[in-house]
Structures are given as structure tokens and as C-alpha cells.
């Protein structure tokens, strides 16, 4: 981990000049926790790191829309800012719930919302939650700006659709009345571990009937993945053992789960079936 420079641009224009669309040895750095791990392991050898910490304006801050319909979250917002934001706690309690078992206090104090997404490690806890909430990312680059659903960031294991000189500037997260969400982190080795599977659910329930929902699987697959077939089984359905079983089977059928050190494919598929059902039941129980 030697032989690189760190630059700290104070404007976006300067940042774009310092980034290089062609050179993977030039990278933006947010909180830097994930990048540091890759550098220490010599998996990544940078020549220039472009720090985003002096960029303010849209890269920082948590703002709620005047009508309460959603949040704008700057990409350099740290996890602990999210965790402790009273507005987020009130309108998106699933975020605080996820934070409780996400890495540790020190990482949450440093890691940034944008860096977490750009890292594209499928084991991260927050990305599936953003997807389940229907969040969109505002991506800026020298060629302009685009707003994409968060799931469109991920292309595979540590792979994103972002160009080398593009930056995630902010997230837009809707707050949908009548919807509720939760994140299930299933670990198989120790209580405090990377998830064997992460399951984020947001749903609009009417009693035990599911009007609409978004189901997202992470960790057991190579990127946070919408479980469209399982959603289709559940959308409009009454919650019951047969429906939940069918949804679990659909989820297993529509995903490719590989064996790894956290469990065999068959076991993780079984966990998916069980926890998908339990998550829906837990959401229903919360509404009662």
C-alpha cells in the first residue's frame, strides 16, 4: 500500500478533471473503509485517490421533502448520520433497524452511503434495503447527470454500471404511506458476521392481504436482486402457509445461489424459503 497520491478537490469540476475515465488506478474515495481493505490486501493498487470529503452541497445532508414524500440523502452522508437522524428514524425505521447489526460503530462513523453502493459487494446490508425502498441514485459525471434506480448500479460481484469518472452524488428515497419494511440478516457462523443471506422486504399490507411489495435478496447472490417471481406470487395474495411456501419456492427457482463458506447452496436455499415466509409474517405482525 504505497506509491499513490491523495487529492481533495473542492468542486465537482475539479473532481472530474482529477478522475480518469480510462485508468482504474484512479478512483474516488468516500469514507474509504472498503477501499482501504482492498488496498491493504493488495487487491487494489491505486495511483491516485480522489477524496470526496471536501465536496459539499449535494454530497452532504439529509433532507426531507416538504410534503414528506421522500428524502434526499447526500452520498457522503455517513451511516451513523443516517442511523441517528430523527427524520430517518421516524419515516424509514428499517434503516435504523439495519444499522444495528451493520459492521460496527467505527465503520458506521466513517463509511458513506455513496461509497457503500459503489463498492458493490453483494454482502453489504444497506444496498438491498435501498432497493426494497425503491431508492434512486443521482449519478454525476463530466458528461452530465442521470438518475437511476439503485438496483441499476449493480452489475455483479464488485461490478457497477458507473463509469470511472462518474460519482454517486445523492440518493432519492421515497417515503410511501402505508408501506412498511424490514431487513433480515441471516448469519450462519457467528452472531456478528457477514450475512449468508440478506433479505429486504417492503410491502403495503391490508390486514393479511399484500397489496404490493418489493422483495430483495443479497449476499447469497452476486448482487442485490429483486425476487420478481416471488413478488408476483405474493402481490394481491392473502398471507398464509401455502402462499408463503409458493413464494419461497419461486424465490429459490428464480435465483442462482452458490455454495460458499457460509453454507451450501441447498442450505441457503432452504434458509431463503424459511426466512422469506418469516419476514412476511413479521411484517404482518407489525401492522396488527
Amino acid at each position: 500500500m504505497t506509491g499513490f497520491e491523495i487529492v481533495e478537490p473542492e468542486s465537482l469540476e475539479e473532481a472530474f478533471r482529477l478522475l480518469d475515465p480510462e485508468d482504474p488506478a484512479v478512483r474516488p474515495i468516500g469514507g474509504g473503509t472498503a477501499l482501504m481493505l482492498m488496498m491493504k490486501a493488495q487487491i487494489y493498487k491505486p495511483e491516485r485517490l480522489v477524496s470526496l470529503r471536501r465536496l459539499d452541497g449535494r454530497f452532504s445532508g439529509i433532507d426531507i421533502a416538504a410534503d414528506g414524500s421522500g428524502f434526499r440523502i447526500g452520498a457522503m452522508t455517513t451511516f451513523s448520520m443516517l442511523e441517528h437522524s430523527p427524520a430517518i428514524r421516524r419515516h424509514l425505521p428499517v434503516i435504523a433497524q439495519t444499522m444495528k447489526t451493520l459492521a460496527n460503530v467505527r465503520v458506521r462513523n466513517v463509511a458513506s452511503v455513496g461509497g457503500n453502493l459503489a463498492h458493490a459487494d453483494p454482502h453489504l446490508d444497506l444496498p438491498p434495503v435501498w432497493v426494497a425502498l425503491g431508492a434512486r441514485a443521482v449519478v454525476v459525471g463530466p458528461r452530465g447527470e442521470r438518475t437511476i434506480p439503485v438496483e441499476a448500479i449493480f452489475e455483479g460481484y464488485y461490478e457497477t454500471s458507473l463509469a470511472n469518472d462518474e460519482l454517486i452524488a445523492e440518493l432519492e428515497v421515497p417515503v410511501r404511506a402505508g408501506w412498511d419494511a424490514l431487513y433480515v440478516k441471516v448469519t450462519t457462523r457467528a452472531a456478528h458476521d457477514w450475512p449468508a443471506l440478506g433479505l429486504a422486504v417492503s410491502a403495503e399490507l391490508e390486514g393479511r392481504r399484500i397489496r404490493d411489495l418489493r422483495l430483495v435478496l443479497s449476499a447469497a447472490v452476486d448482487k442485490p436482486t429483486r425476487l420478481a417471481a416471488a413478488e408476483a406470487v405474493l402481490r394481491g395474495a392473502e398471507i398464509g402457509p401455502a402462499t408463503l411456501r409458493a413464494a419461497g419456492e419461486a424465490a429459490v427457482a428464480e435465483t442462482e445461489i452458490e455454495s460458499d463458506s457460509r453454507g451450501s447452496a441447498a442450505y441457503k436455499q432452504h434458509l431463503l424459503r424459511v426466512h422469506l415466509g418469516r419476514a412476511i409474517e413479521a411484517l404482518a405482525a407489525k401492522r396488527v
Binding site: M36, L37, R53, V105, R106, V107, N109
Partner: peptide, 27 residues
């Protein structure tokens, strides 16, 4: 541990604990 998992390198930066082993000193 060198990975921010063990907390042996905990210091406070601007009043918040961080893992000193993952925190570049320039910051």
C-alpha cells in the same frame, strides 16, 4: 486485525470513534 473488526486501533476523530488502521492519516 487490520480490518476494522477488532477495535484495538480505536481513536476518536472529531469526537467519534474510528478504526485508526483503516483511516488514512491525511484525512
Amino acid at each position: 486485525c487490520g480490518q476494522g473488526l477488532c477495535g484495538c486501533c480505536t481513536v476518536h476523530v472529531d469526537g467519534k470513534p474510528v478504526s485508526g488502521c483503516l483511516f488514512l492519516a491525511v484525512f
